[in-house]
Design a protein around this nucleic acid. Structure first.
Lengths: 341, 341
DNA sequence: GAGTTCAATGTGAGCGCTAACAAATACGTG
DNA sequence: CACGTATTTGTTAGCGCTCACATTGAACTC
């Protein structure tokens, strides 16, 4: 007894089984209208009988479209990137696209560049770059020939599409809220140097302070981690006259809260604290954190919209039109802020 | 002036440019040893001159290996899955593989099955299924013909490889720690029904209690969210004689902490709380959380190791040998637990 | 110097699919 | 019923690459 060739069935096998040509099978698979109903049924029956599954690789080779999108991101373990990617993936799949992810441990132009190249070789139809560092943005300078791309929070350049959250606006919301509560000024624990978010939030905070004619204290530099917030919080607790703190993200705000609590400083009675992001935990911090909410999901969806639009444009030979989509943050008031008495 | 054909260069173009055959170009690209150094140099020069990038899709078509791995996961926004996937991605890329991700919003066998099929069509060389629900595990029953797969926390079945964390052990660690501190018994806030982790932690907790001959209180069912922990915490605060709580994850522990704090119950003086996961925030909770650490990174790496081994085996025609890799959790003592006075 | 071996290169076929065109069949209509 | 016009199906070529094999030439051996 010879073992039958243990090969997966291909289109030709289905064609033979159904008594049609392989092209007809292809038509059925691609929902081509001009196929008689009974032929279609016969082909479909053959497909299930044989357990046939089409080979998208072969299809991609001839169509020159892989229906795969690449995503380059920094530390997908962080809530922000993770949520953005989740939104991207959901939107992409809904649109019939796969998502291939490269998450970078360290960011610099070379790294990002290499990741994009890597994805381009793989034949992705477009890429989303979630790498909000200034140095990463440089990698978008000259993309592989004609590769549609969209950046999240990327850059201010005009020749690449961008989806971003209005960081300045968010920071202003936070700062003004604190000022409205009667605080003389607001201290800031910033994100790491080189991040676009850091800069936006810093600027927004400063602008709000200056608009109100208030003194602008020296910001404390952090790195997004709770530990950095904790260290900053210890410094803040040791200083005089601090009544309001705006941390550049919720995790650092958590650290600040912790440090303050250890030093016996009561929040919000003695010091008010505001964060940024609205991670799921924030509502349950001690006290529940007042923060700026970013809708990462929406960002992810927008990315795909913009990218697909760009891919379409490319196919139809139109000149690329770069878009810039700004998502507005909202403000969530909880219990970590209070009026100055 | 006619526009030159705006086509990306292919191997044949490089071959012509370098004055060799396309095969030689292929050899250079694949580091074949038998190429003279100067030929190699000439080819490489031609490649950079033309800006050639090879088409991995075409390569995949003939080699029948896409060097892409599929990952199916549930809610990649959660810390656990996100970290696992991060580990998977890093390990895969190091091994020269791409990672294509499908993250599911809701889990059931059909969903998971469809995702796996989807990836199989795309031609992935293997899949990792990070879907630790019992219902999801069923989707691993009969995989697409010969598709190498590995499950994270998947199932107890013998015909699919599994990488998991010893949940029971972790739960025992937590429970025993509390018992050692002099608590009469330990209450448990469990994860949602149907999750493997929920069951493992529940079992471990119960076993530790029974081993010590202690009463086993009715567990409070949660859903991993801080809010569920918060609700459970309120119930716990209203009950008599509760001195120790083991929450099935850190987020729920955070909720418990919050509820207790609102009710004026002091942790750890009146009630001790232990979590599970060791998310980055835990160290900065109020109070810093004693918890069970899971090394998701290691899990991710192991997944890839096992999967690649399986892919290799398949190529060499060996019968598949299913592996079961158990990663041991560790215990982190912080300030949310104390001796009973 | 003929025979053998091995390294370096080239040639042809074909992976599984879709696009473009060709052929066959059905459907009206005067 | 012959004719044009859709509709349905089949045929051929080729996407860009690797594989198996053929060929060349240099390097040894006796």
């Amino acid at each position: 007894m010879t073992t039958p060739k243990r090969r997966l069935p291909v289109m030709a096998d289905v064609a033979k089984e159904a008594g049609v040509s392989h092209q007809t099978v292809s038509r059925v698979l691609n929902d081509h209208p001009n196929v008689r109903a009974d032929t279609r049924a016969r082909v479909e029956a053959a497909i299930t009988r044989l357990g046939y599954r089409r080979n998208l690789v072969a299809r991609a080779l001839v169509t020159k479209r892989s229906r795969t999108l690449g995503v380059v991101s920094f530390d997908t373990t962080l809530y922000g990137p993770a949520s953005t990617i989740y939104g991207i993936e959901q939107a992409a799949r809904t649109a019939g696209y796969f998502v291939s992810i490269v998450s970078l441990k360290t960011i610099d132009a070379d790294n990002v560049r290499a990741a994009i190249d890597y994805l381009a070789e793989q034949g992705v139809d477009g890429v989303v770059v979630v790498a909000p560092q200034r140095s990463a943005a440089m990698a978008l300078e000259n993309l592989p020939a004609g590769l549609p791309a969209v950046a999240v929070e990327g850059t201010h350049r005009a020749d690449v599409s961008i989806v971003c959250i209005d960081q300045m606006e968010g920071a202003k919301l936070a700062t003004r809220h604190l000022l409205d509560q009667g605080h003389e000024t607001v201290w800031h624990v910033s994100g790491p140097h080189d991040w676009m978010e850091t800069e936006g939030r810093l600027e927004g905070w400063r602008a709000a302070l200056e608009e109100a004619g208030r003194p602008v204290p020296e910001p404390l530099a952090g790195d997004w981690s709770p530990r950095a917030g904790y260290e900053a919080g210890k410094s803040l607790a040791a200083m005089d006259g601090v009544t309001a703190v705006f941390a550049a993200n919720d995790q650092m705000a958590l650290g600040v809260l912790r440090a303050l609590s250890e030093k016996g400083v009561r929040v919000p009675q003695q010091i008010s604290v505001v964060g940024f992001d609205d991670i799921p935990e924030s509502e349950f911090f001690s006290p529940p954190l007042t923060t700026v909410r970013q809708d990462f999901d929406v960002v992810g969806r927008h990315c795909i919209e913009v990218l697909l639009r760009q891919i379409d444009l490319q196919l139809n030979g139109g000149a690329s039109a770069y878009e810039r989509l700004v998502v507005r943050p909202s403000f969530v008031v909880r219990s970590s802020t209070a009026r100055v008495r």
